[in-house]
């Protein structure tokens, strides 16, 4: 039976406990003190939660010197458990040789697991702190490169955090 052995029987109660009223007053004191404690609620549209670096918001592509870090290896697309990422590789003249012609994340499918970030050898795809993701239709929810690219300077806190914690 799921008992923890601490059942209070009626015979265990003292006189003041068994006439209820002082116990009721004790309970009332607790609730009344709780009433005047500070509240933790964020009044959402006006005050917004600023997530710390650990937060896994929507994934973004890091852009450095005007070009994405991504080498289009396709590991993120491979590891993605929700099959949300689609990468098409192309050749480039730069030292890194390959770049993604097309990089799409379907934000309706994304489950914010962070596997893409973990698997990426170039620290090219990382989780940002953006969490306001509501869409009117499915087409709007597919983020292409133009929405995914963020400069390395902007993503600095997360990159610093990744250096220490990964």
């Amino acid at each position: 039976m799921g008992t923890n052995g601490n059942i209070i029987r009626k015979k265990d109660l003292g006189f003041w406990q068994s006439i209820y009223v002082p116990e009721i007053l004790k309970g009332l004191r607790l609730t009344i003190t709780q009433m005047f404690k500070p509240k933790f609620t964020y009044e959402f549209p006006e005050v917004r939660f600023k997530p710390p670096e650990v937060f896994r918001g929507r994934p973004v592509l890091v852009e450095e010197n005007g070009v994405e870090r991504c080498v289009a290896c396709g590991l993120c697309s491979r590891v993605c458990p929700a099959l949300a990422i689609e990468v098409q590789a192309g050749e480039t003249e730069l030292a890194k040789e390959r770049y993604p012609i097309k990089f799409e994340i379907n934000m309706v499918r994304c489950i914010f697991c962070g596997f893409c970030e973990e698997v990426c050898p170039e620290e090219a795809i990382i989780m940002s702190n953006e969490y306001l993701l509501a869409f009117n239709n499915q087409v709007e929810a597919v983020f292409g490169k133009e929405k995914l690219l963020k400069s390395a300077a902007e993503m600095r806190p997360r990159l610093e955090w990744l250096k220490v914690n990964r």
Binding site: Q34, M35, K37, K39, E43
Partner: peptide, 10 residues
Amino acid sequence: RISAWIQNRL
């Protein structure tokens, strides 16, 4: 509102 205040809500 009072129930919310008692439960540390608004």
